[in-house]
Design a protein around this nucleic acid. Structure first.
Lengths: 233, 233
DNA sequence: GTGTGAAGGATTGTTCTACGATCCTGCAAT
DNA sequence: ATTGCAGGATCGTAGAACAATCCTTCACAC
């Protein structure tokens, strides 16, 4: 590199930032299956035979196994030795555990997050509240559920930690499976819309301690309601 | 089941609880490699060729690949497409992120954990402090480091969430890689022994808010110290 | 009838082989 | 000193194969 003017430097830096365009086959398969589970086209408890999947997706059984292993690690699927992999069926203890984790992460992100004062991060929280409200106004309940997930994701993003964001994503994926198992999801999400709004306002006002504690109460209420619904099932 | 007295019930329940004795080959391999990395026999940045591993461990390349994929998901290894997998080399941004996550999880577990008053859980914290002190007394610095990890693990266990425990395990595994990269680890751990003790006492006294905030300050200090050491490297 | 046991089929766990794609290395050419 | 290219190594993926395990079915005995 005999000479290097700034524009060339920038161009090289931008090229270095471009990630690989090619996505491994096993990841494509994992993405496909993950989406099918998220959209409930693959119901809770459904079995996923390796050979059938390989033929359906035009991919080798090896590749299918890699994808399935990844999804098992994400707790979207469970593997029973010598029996196969199934869409995870969250039990009572799982609901309890997921909420124990959320109860630490979400209020913790509010109280000890490094971006609690970041306008962009706070705007994302407010946006999730707004989209949830407009979805509710049109009776779009699946939209309300999605907005609710966005809200909690945005709250955790206040921590500014990609690792925590990923873990929260896994927890929310489990929540989707929980909702699959119980009826009356529409009524479930609606009352929390107003509470989401209250928390967003507290955050905007900088009342982070109040917001964190209110969020904790919120989660305990939701957990108990879910456990109650699980009990009569 | 025509008749069933309680003793039979108990026996069946205990049998149902016994997990499968057979461990899949890929998991055995993953455990092996994970241990090698933890003991720093596989140094940061080291390359792990699939074929060589398979021959060394008397296992097929497919099985090795499954194990490696699992460890990549745990962030112990990183995979560079068409190049291979390597022992992860945590950069500055990784240290920052790990601490952002710990800063949420650890004080969060203290403040919002469901087992903060559980004597058994608190005893585990105190025990980690004690073993750390006796290790320091004999100059056993690797023992001090291990006890320190136990301390933080015990703190997160106050949340009572296996999922959070697993995530904390992954974060601590990354911390071990961080410590591999910087010299003077002995001096690093020692000053935190007394702070561990202070936090344990606060917890024993039921001063959970003070304990949580002190833990947060603790983590910020440690993070800055590590980032500083990383800068001059 | 209810429980026990054996035969048959399907699926998983694992190994082995194979081959194109990609990357690294070294050397020659400009 | 940079570029271009051949050679070699490793990865990504496919495919076939086989033992081990599990489920189902059916026959059999009490």
């Amino acid at each position: 590199m005999t000479e290097s003017n700034p524009s060339v430097q920038d161009a090289l830096a931008s090229l270095a930032a471009t990630s690989t365009v090619v996505v491994p086959a096993s990841e494509r398969v994992a993405d496909r299956i993950r989406a099918e589970v998220a959209e409930a086209r693959l119901r809770v408890g459904a079995r996923l035979p390796e050979q059938a999947l390989g033929e359906a997706l035009q991919v080798s059984r090896n590749t299918v196994r890699e994808a399935l292993s990844q999804l098992v690690a994400e707790r979207v699927l469970v593997r029973i030795p010598n029996r196969g992999v199934f869409v995870a069926r969250p039990e009572r203890v799982d609901v309890r555990d997921v909420y124990s984790a959320r109860l630490v992460i979400e209020p913790g992100a509010v109280r000890y997050g490094e971006r609690v004062a970041d306008p962009a991060a706070l705007a994302a929280v407010a946006r999730a509240v707004d989209t949830g409200r407009s979805a509710a106004a049109t009776g779009d309940w699946v939209g309300v559920a999605a907005a609710n997930q966005h809200f909690h994701r945005a709250v955790v993003a206040l921590a500014g930690s990609p690792r925590l964001d990923r873990e929260m994503g896994r927890l929310l994926a489990e929540m989707r499976l929980v909702f699959q198992r119980m009826p009356g999801v529409r009524e479930f999400h609606e009352p929390y819309l107003t509470r989401n709004g209250e928390i967003a306002e507290l955050l905007a006002d900088g009342a982070i301690e109040k917001a964190a504690d209110e969020l904790a109460r919120y989660l305990v209420t939701a957990r108990d309601q879910l456990l109650d619904a699980y009990a009569r099932l």
